[in-house]
Amino acid sequence: MKRSVLLSVNGERREVFIKPNSTLLEVLRDELLLTGAKEACGSGECGACTVLVDGKPVNSCITLAMEAEGKAIETIEGLSKEGKLHPLQEAFIDHHAFQCGFCTPGMIMSAKAFLKRSPEPTKEEIRNAISGNICRCTGYENAVDAILDTAVGTEK
């Protein structure tokens, strides 16, 4: 049976009426029309659906929407503020860190959570941090550079 759930998405309170087994990804994409998070595997193996829940990256395709109730959900749509791109977004463009861009929203969200935890990372640590985000196009190195650049540019 469907029930109503109150979610906080990118700082906005959103009430949705969903089945208990609806995944967070389904709710974001189909109910809230936030299509930035992508489904590439649907089984937690690729990271394309990564969003942040209370600051932690989760694969939203295997997270129940109800589990996120009362927590702060952050998606790629919430990253740019006041009409300005987030430094990670700028760095991804500067470094040609995407080709088709299908993996990009998920990878940027993983990177955001990671930089919060490790503001001064090594390349190795960055590689590890995004190793759950599969990209078939780029070969990753430009994304690693983009993330490193953002870290260096972030005020300590």
């Binding site: 998070a37 998606t75 790629i76 990670l88 977004q89 463009i93 040609h96 995407f98 990009t104 929203p105």
Partner: peptide, 12 residues
């Protein structure tokens, strides 16, 4: 830079 880069990094 890619002319459509901002679309991609914002999920749009």
């Amino acid at each position: 830079r890619r002319t459509d880069g901002a679309l991609i990094v914002t999920g749009r």
